[in-house]
Amino acid sequence: DDGPPDSPPANLDQVPDPLPAVEPLASGPNRPYVIFGKRYVPATSLQPYKVRGIASWYGRKFHGARTSNGEIYDMYAMTAAHTTLPIPSYARVTRVATGKSVIVRINDRGPFHDNRIIDLSYTAAYKLGLLEAGSGEVEVELLLPDEIARIRAERSHGTMLAAAPDAAASSSGGAVQAMPVAAPAPITQVQELPPAPAPSALDPATATVSSPAQSGVFLQLGAFSGPSNAQALLARLKAQLPDWTEPLRIVNADNLHRVHIGPYPSRESAQAAAQRLQARLDIVPLIVTR
Rank of each mutant, 00 (worst) to 15 (best):
A91G: 05
R92P: 01
V93Q: 02
V93F: 08
R95Q: 12
R95Y: 05
V96C: 03
V96K: 04
V96M: 07
A97D: 07
T98R: 05
S101E: 00
V102P: 02
V102E: 06
R105K: 14
D108M: 04
D108C: 03
D108F: 12
R109C: 03
R109A: 04
G110M: 14
P111E: 07
F112A: 05
I117T: 04
I117Y: 02
S121C: 08
S121Y: 07
L128R: 02
G129P: 00
E137Y: 05
E139V: 06
E141D: 06
E141Q: 08
E141R: 07
L143W: 11
L144I: 12
L144A: 03
P145I: 12
R150P: 03
H157C: 07
H157K: 14
L161A: 08
A163M: 12
A167S: 14
A168H: 08
S170T: 14
S172T: 15
G174C: 10
V176T: 06
A183I: 08
P184V: 06
P184E: 00
E192C: 03
L193D: 04
P194R: 09
P194M: 07
P197Q: 10
A198H: 09
A198G: 06
P199M: 12
A201V: 13
A205N: 06
A205Y: 07
T206W: 13
F218E: 07
L219R: 15
